[in-house]
Nucleic acid binder design. Structure first.
Lengths: 194, 194
DNA sequence: CGACTTACGTACCGATCGGTACCGAATATC
DNA sequence: GATATTCGGTACCGATCGGTACGTAAGTCG
């Protein structure tokens, strides 16, 4: 690499930005908030990440690799029941981790927004749909493998689990405790598969 | 009333403001957006409603009386099962009403926010807790009346139903159809009470 | 018709928004 | 050491943010 080397760790800066978006949402996170937490100036941020929207995209990707990685691990479980259990337990843990922002970046990052927040809203709506697709595909496989009863509606099952996960995220953002949320998750899957 | 009469209907204006907050969230709704939809100038808005935060409070009260009034009607049903069914069906209808904003004002009005949106965030966190309390009290009564089995955890039941309702709100905001959401609601209550 | 009271419209306030021009500082190559 | 290349900091951009001062219009009272 030629030229002056950057004086900060881009990975750490991105992590800090992710936390700010997570805690304050896309519209609620100003460039001053972001760069302040990242420990860099606006100029450095624009040079390294493009603009606010692209920074958000990268922060979301980082969220997938870190806090939301429980989703990919969940669908690797051997049975549909274990998949659903791991998925909801993972969402409970991530949305209530001590010291971190309460709730889920994919939900509270941008749910309703004005014109300025429209890009983030669309990005996250797609993110949520992808999550459902992930579960639906996995449950369809479970039906094919005989793990779930023939005729089981994989899409409906996936929608249900995702809905509970999103509800958990909202509750976590409202301050509901990890213990309560785990009870909710257990309740939702008590009569699995339904 | 002495002096010049106001040239607009305060009720209609408040309704229009509620729709803007609902569609764009507290932070995403600028005064220009609000007053534009209300058909009045900023001065008239401040004279009639105080400021942005108080306008939001009044819009939320209006939401309770209108779109969210299904909640109070639901808890008047004779049995806990009917209460839960009416509550979730009502939430599905309100969050997917044609021509209106998708989702729930109480959820997407402000879930994560920066400093400017902090008041709205707290107002809505309390609003959500009140909803749970409403159901919990009703379910406790159902236990006392013998409608629900003795030893039933009313709080846990209320948390579960609220969580599904919030999840439905998030899904609606993401564009999931009314038909799909009604299926989710049916799935959640299929093994009632649990 | 005045006098009084209230609402409306304009023009403006300081602060902050996301984003950029510009220049000096730091490093690799020659 | 000179040069090329990149990064960092300051100072600034027009636009918009929530909120207000002030003059004028539109009514009710005497």
């Amino acid at each position: 690499m030629i030229g002056r080397p950057r004086g900060f760790d881009a990975d750490e800066a991105l992590h800090a930005a992710m936390l700010v978006f997570w805690r304050q949402g896309y519209e609620g996170a100003s460039l001053a908030d972001l760069t302040g937490a990242m420990g860099i100036t606006k100029t450095s941020m624009y040079a390294a990440f493009g603009n606010k929207e692209q920074l958000f995209r990268k922060a979301l990707a980082r969220y997938d690799e870190g806090p939301a990685s429980y989703a990919l691990r969940a669908v690797e479980k051997p049975t549909a029941r274990e998949v659903a259990t791991a998925f909801l337990t993972g969402s409970v843990h991530t949305t209530t981790q001590p010291g971190g922002p309460a709730g889920c970046l994919g939900v509270q990052g941008s749910l309703a927004a004005g014109d300025a927040g429209e890009p983030a809203r669309e990005i996250l709506a797609e993110w949520r749909t992808n999550g459902r697709q992930l579960l639906e595909t996995r449950f369809r496989r479970a039906v094919d493998e005989g793990d779930l009863p023939p005729g089981t509606d994989a899409r409906r099952l996936a929608l249900f689990v995702m809905t509970v996960a999103f509800g958990i995220a909202v509750q976590a953002a409202s301050g509901v405790s990890r213990t309560d949320l785990q009870e909710i998750a257990d309740t939702a899957l008590h009569h699995w598969p339904v």
